[in-house]
Design a protein around this nucleic acid. Structure first.
Length: 708
RNA sequence: GGCGGCGUAGCUCAGUUGGUUAGAGCAGCGGAAUCAUAAUCCGCGUGUCCGGGGUUCGAGUCCCUGCGCCGCUACCA
């Protein structure tokens, strides 16, 4: 029998946000690998889906006043369109919110039960009475119980890397309402993953399942100690699947998300008349997961442990990539480098980005830097100047004659590039696309040198050299075709165009092994435009928004940020023009309001608890060790002074603050901070991160006056 | 400050288990050619492989340490 068939997945993007260039590192990487396998004749399917459950979706639907299902349908359509635009060719793109997933979750759940890995525990859980919900891990912050780092999320500490339960947090605060959550007792269900410790020791360290740096990381950070139980249930209200044998409780989104890989495959099987078990329950299928390094924990520990006790196959390999940075820094909305897939497609050809990512991707977990000038140079020099140019400079000479019918002497050039196919294939196979691209470009260099030596343009002027001209162009176009074959996983459209040019579609990797002879040649048509630098600028301008920087992860962020993800991005794609033109004088959009929705209602009494006062900044000094803090001395009139640390460093200079009037929250409890005690807070608007607007009273106000 | 990553030619980077005079592309300079989307071809690279120790017969490659940069995080009461 032939090699095992392949089932390949990319991480499921969360249905709470749009696809951006960071996500695309992963989808382009996976798509190239899948296309490579298919081109080699390997049976291979590429499966993905929207990740749809969890508190973040529930909260957002609530904010928008729509049903979760409507929100999901909208995002599914947008995601599908974005992926198609970048030529990401899924065999199926489903959703975790489907019957198949519910059934599979239930089945695996029962397997975990049977393996004795599920236990129940009454836990005291944090409940936000204002928001009317129990608080998901990422909606509560507090002090890490392990290292005492303040302001940590409920699931893990980013400072010490410790994973724990939200209930263990010290001084919890709800990020939904800002309220101090009350403690309520609730039944929770746990997976005792420690029962699989020995298995995971072995599985993660052996058989090339993981990159070595990942295996080391797991050994150093998790496997050296008992694995903590995993809290996999959430009490109502929660958007997800209710656990059949524990009514009122729902599976945590991270339980059903990876099972979504299976559910989506199942849907594909139904569509194609395939046997689901042949794909997930048979050793004749090799399963490959491509993910970003941020979700390593779930995919390399929980997921294998869950599968182990079920009747399903373990992944053959989990391929992990790093994050995307732009110009050496994380993507930033204010710098215009947080670019949505749909925005890119308005201005630039996806081929540029596909080739650029390919040329920079290695099998390592390193972060990848996107530099647009670099991308433009590479696309122009490599793709247009070297590759496409080969066809462009020779095809026209053989339109009337077609390719020669026998292979001329080419000095072994074709044979060399054919032989290179082995090494190039190895590079693709190992996800070392950088190496593959370099090998391919070397072949293009050799081909251009050949054309240069043979000078077909001179032969074309000599009627006696017609035959020689045909030979030279036959060689050149065959070398070009080999390159088009090797580049086909990265640049599918170039392969199609080459097929059209030479009247023979490219369908298999091995077509680079045998010259194409006697084929007619169409007149050359442009295959790829040079990069328009102005389009790059326009794209960045359109992407520039007064927003704080956003996580530049290459894969999904199932765990949402504490603030609801700004919804304005949805509008930017489909309806950005309309609202602008209807209000000529002020074009204020609702981005800010959506980014930070209005808090739950409070009473006048509540409001009056806060004593706001006019104050004058009488001194301001830099705090050298602080990144964001300035130390301000405020006067409330007379001798009344307050010492306040304000996070405005870099936005306001100390000297320009001295003398100005601000609004001070004067009766806040003093707060001990790293550099001293802060005795109040000055009021400011803006999202932060370079955008802060201090509030000032109109002229005439006096320090010490209260705001009513 | 904590955790993680990185530091190789002007720029972007290869150099995966330590082994001959450290490589490529781009940019630059000089030349050729004019078929091609001003694309192509030829020629030109002694860089303290961030610094300092160490292991080794031998280190860009391993260990320690210092410095610098990036990210997350903490200081935004």
């Amino acid at each position: 029998m032939s090699k095992p068939q392949l089932l390949v997945t990319s991480a499921l993007p969360y249905a709470n946000g749009h696809i951006h260039l960071g996500h695309l590192v992963e989808y382009i990487q996976t798509d190239i690998w899948v296309r490579f396998q298919k081109l080699r004749g390997r049976r291979c399917i590429y499966i993905c889906a929207d990740d749809t459950h969890g508190t973040a979706i529930m909260i957002r639907a609530r904010q928008e006043g729509v049903r979760e299902e409507d929100l999901l349908a909208r995002m599914h359509e947008a995601h599908t369109r974005d992926f198609a635009g970048f030529q990401i060719a899924f065999d199926h793109y489903g959703s975790t919110h489907c019957e198949e997933n519910r059934q599979l979750c239930w089945e695996i759940w029962q397997s975990l039960r049977k393996a004795g890995m599920i236990y129940e525990e009454e836990v005291r859980q944090l409940y936000d009475a204002q928001a009317g919900t129990f608080l998901a891990d990422r909606f509560v912050k507090g002090v890490c119980p392990n290292c005492r780092a303040p302001n940590q999320y409920g699931d893990s500490c980013d400072r010490c890397g410790h994973h724990y339960d939200p209930i263990d947090l010290i001084d919890p605060v709800s990020t939904l309402s800002g309220a101090r959550p009350e403690v309520r007792t609730a039944l929770h269900l746990f997976v005792d993953i420690e029962k699989q410790h020995a298995f995971l020791d072995q599985w993660t360290q052996n058989a090339d399942h993981l990159q070595p740096e990942i295996a080391n990381y797991l050994r150093g950070h998790f496997l050296g100690q008992p694995l903590r139980p995993w809290d996999v249930s959430r009490p109502a209200p929660y958007f997800g699947f209710e656990i059949p044998d524990s009514p009122g409780n729902y599976w945590y989104v991270w339980f059903d998300a990876p099972i979504g890989y299976m559910a989506s495959t199942w849907q594909w099987c139904k569509k194609e008349g395939e046997d689901f078990d042949a794909w997930w329950a048979s050793p004749d299928t090799h399963i490959y997961h491509f993910i970003g390094k941020d979700i390593t924990y779930f995919h390399t520990l929980f997921w294998p442990a869950m599968l182990r006790v079920s009747r399903y196959q373990l992944p053959r390999r989990i391929q992990i990539h790093g994050f995307l940075t732009v110009n050496g820094e994380k993507m930033s909305k204010s710098k215009g480098t947080f670019i949505l897939a749909s925005t890119y497609l308005k201005y630039l050809d996806p081929a540029y980005l596909r080739y650029y990512y390919a040329s920079k991707l290695t099998p390592r977990v390193d972060d990848l830097d996107l530099n647009f000038e670099d991308m433009a140079e590479k696309a122009d020099a490599d793709l247009v100047g070297k590759v496409v140019n080969l066809a462009s400079r020779t095809a026209r000479f053989v339109v009337s004659t077609g390719l020669a019918s026998s292979w001329p002497d080419d000095g072994g050039l074709f044979a060399q590039t054919a032989a290179d196919g082995i090494e190039i294939a190895e590079a693709y196979e190992a996800c070392d696309f950088n190496r593959a691209m370099r090998l391919i470009l070397a072949a293009a260099d050799r081909a251009n040198q050949y054309v240069e030596r043979q000078e077909p343009w001179k032969l074309a002027k000599d009627p006696g050299q017609t035959e020689q001209l045909q030979k030279v162009c036959t060689v050149a176009l065959n070398l070009f075709r080999q390159i088009a074959v090797y580049l086909a996983p990265v640049l599918p459209r170039l392969a199609e165009q080459t097929g059209r040019l030479l009247h023979r579609p490219i369908q298999h990797w091995d077509e680079a092994q045998k010259p194409l002879l006697g084929s007619p040649v169409r007149p050359f048509e442009h295959m790829l435009k040079r990069v328009d630098r102005q389009a790059i600028s326009a794209m960045i301008d359109e992407s520039r928004q007064p927003e704080e920087a956003v996580q530049a992860s290459g894969s999904r962020t199932t765990v949402p940020s504490a603030k609801p993800v700004p919804a304005e991005t949805a509008g930017a794609v489909t309806e950005s023009g309309a609202s602008v033109s209807s209000s000529p004088r002020w074009d204020d959009d609702e981005a800010a309001l959506r980014a930070e929705p209005i808090a739950p209602q409070c009473t006048m009494e509540d409001f009056q608890k806060v004593d706001l006062r006019v104050a004058r900044i009488v001194a301001a000094e830099d705090v050298p060790k602080a990144k964001k803090l300035l130390k301000l001395t405020l006067s409330l009139g007379g001798e009344h002074r307050r010492n306040v640390f304000a996070g405005v460093k870099g936005v306001y200079k100390p000297e320009e603050l001295v003398g100005r009037l601000v609004i001070l929250a004067a009766n806040l409890a003093p707060r001990k901070m790293a550099f001293g005690t802060s005795e109040g807070m000055i009021l400011a608007a803006g999202p932060g991160d370079g955008e802060i607007y201090l509030l000032s009273p109109d002229p005439g106000a006096k320090p010490g006056q209260r705001i009513h």
